[in-house]
Design a protein around this nucleic acid. Structure first.
Lengths: 110, 110
DNA sequence: TCCATTTACTCTGTTTTGCAGAGTTTATAA
DNA sequence: TTATAAACTCTGCAAAACAGAGTAAATGGA
């Protein structure tokens, strides 16, 4: 059985990684607002992504309020792409209607 | 933010739906063996998929040991395809290397 | 016939995970 | 100097996942 990256297979972390990939560097506050999540929860999930090197932080202070900028790493993007690919391979018919090569035609209930 | 089907965004259920899509009708025991999962846990997740009509059961008895055959529904396959599509849209660069139209080039840390 | 076995559950308890909010620190702006 | 904001940390609760024991129904073999 194809394995799915447990770190990415979680709603908030999937959204975090995808959002960072699309939006580039974001502050803690930006992420909190955009994903509508409590700061405790955001912090916990960011820590897991940091520990896996899927995300990096850059901390600024001195020229305004202290700010932490979070950014996706190449490792993180690669992991996300591998994750989506793994899901596609699990599915016998790809979402665009084409058949994945390794699977048979799905048989469905009525 | 694009939403992800919470029912599918869980490792075991994702695997269950994908496996049923590829392998067709499967017994409870088959699923237990293939996915290497405890029967209590398998039962719990199958119930959720049944409740959402992503899966159906057909029960046989009288001509052998009682057997329950589980099968993916059209609803279930459609949900899975929509789920994978949603993930692809979240990602700024699709896994095959092509850019998704709505997103900008991802900016990454070093 | 009855005993063991298999299937497919149900139930219970434990562990893990997710999550919210209160409190803390540092720093700035008023 | 006080108030406010950012970015945490910590604590506790709630929900989810999970394993395994127990159970009913049915069969197959002795």
């Amino acid at each position: 059985m194809e394995e799915l990256d447990a770190l990415l297979h979680q709603p908030l972390r999937t959204q975090l990684v995808a959002f960072l990939a699309g939006a580039g560097e974001q502050t803690f506050s930006d992420l909190k607002r955009q994903l509508e999540v409590s700061d405790g929860n955001l912090d916990a999930h960011l820590k897991k992504l940091l520990a896996a090197d899927y995300v990096t932080v850059r901390k600024e202070s001195g020229n305004g309020r202290p700010q932490s900028y979070y950014m996706l790493t190449g490792t993180g993007l690669a992991a996300m792409q591998a994750y989506v690919l793994a899901l596609q391979r699990l599915l016998p018919i790809s979402p665009n209607g084409e058949h994945a090569p390794v699977f048979i035609e799905p048989r469905l209930a009525d």
